[in-house]
Design a protein around this nucleic acid. Structure first.
Lengths: 204, 204
DNA sequence: TGTCTTATGACAGTAACTCTCAAAAGATTG
DNA sequence: CAATCTTTTGAGAGTTACTGTCATAAGACA
């Protein structure tokens, strides 16, 4: 039972188990929350459902909120954004990149489901909403660096930071709007309207 | 600061005591945090320093975070904003109102101190930052209603909501910037630059 | 003064974490 | 294959933010 992993970048059994445990905890969490709601779901229950100890749950996720909120789209978004032509207006780059991201999430049915559940939770659980905003500011930081590069400025520039946070805030509100309206609208279209408003200002 | 009890022209002893307790809890909290930091300060210590029971602390403030974050500027801001002429561009109204608010806070030295301490905490304690963002979205909701009124739209309009959150996000980032740079810049000037960026877009 | 209402403190309980330590499981080497 | 080393896990004890209840104290009012 000896697999040589020296030359091939094949992940060892340990790594594979870790990934399995991680996804299992998340799966169990989403299932329990769908049944009982967020607050009524304890970490102990999650641990039991995922067949690990509570200690292990906290070893994989620093807080209960993080089990729900972990979001791996950032690196993807960064790559796409860097790939956009330098001359393109910032808002148009973002428009393109976000549309691509949403379409990709929609392509996989379970991804789309999870996104809907997550945004719905964001609306109903205040603690999750504020954590989501926090993670939004993390994404904003990353975008700042890309934009600063493109504009030939410091990434710490007030103008860059403020503008980026403005965009992120608007997009966050857009997804909240989407969730509040039962995910009936087309998210890409909503994002389009939002970015238009940012570009043109509020019509008086 | 001012009580809502408009029915009784004279605040009874009970009301006065309540206000005193509330401010005392806040004062004790800020003092302890300045000494030991936010996390190291327990509600029990706060209660002891304020000479009340822990139960009472939680009766006045739903969470420890709220002791720090309670922010009574919203109603003031709303009043000022409604007073702006209807024809004025939205960003200019906000510019005026925010400048007035900042100048008012600067007028009182202890208010200014508290604002500096609060924003500094916002930078150093993640939990507080995200809660602050949450309260930002509450303010945004209020501003939405005023703007909707002025623009003759529904306050639930996507465009209004997204635009308002954009502005709030940018302003939040501006105060974070201010705190990160040791409160050395003039906040009014920073806000001006931010609002200009929102108006003109990012200079390429 | 007596009664009615509201604020308070004591206490018990829950649940999200944190820390520590020994045992189990995977990786590695002779 | 066995022995050893490293990483992951679970168990358990402890902290703290918060919740709910109830008797008592303090202010309001007649």
């Amino acid at each position: 039972m000896c697999t040589m992993a020296a030359t091939t970048p094949q992940p060892g059994l340990r790594e594979r188990k870790k990934i399995k445990t991680r996804t299992e905890i998340r799966r169990a969490t989403y299932a329990l929350i769908a049944e009982q709601g967020y607050d009524a779901t304890t970490v102990e229950q999650i641990a039991e459902a995922a067949e690990v100890s509570p200690s292990t749950v906290f070893r994989y996720f620093p807080t209960k909120e993080d089990i729900v909120l972990t979001d791996e789209y950032d690196p993807l978004l960064a790559r796409e954004l860097r790939a956009r032509p330098a001359g393109e207006p910032v808002l148009e780059s973002l428009r393109y990149v976000i549309a691509a991201g949403v379409r990709m999430a929609n392509a996989d049915e379970s991804d789309a489901d999870e996104m809907r559940q997550r945004t719905a939770l964001m609306v109903s659980v205040p603690a999750l909403r504020s954590r989501m905003m926090e993670s939004m500011s993390v994404s904003a930081h990353m975008i700042c660096e890309i934009l600063a590069e493109r504009c030939g400025r410091e990434s710490g520039d007030l103008e860059i930071r403020a503008y980026t946070m403005a965009v992120m805030g608007a997009l966050h509100e857009t997804t909240v709007y989407w969730a509040e309206h039962g995910h009936q609208d087309d998210l890409v279209e909503l994002v389009d309207r939002t970015l238009n408003t940012l570009r043109d200002g509020l019509p008086v």
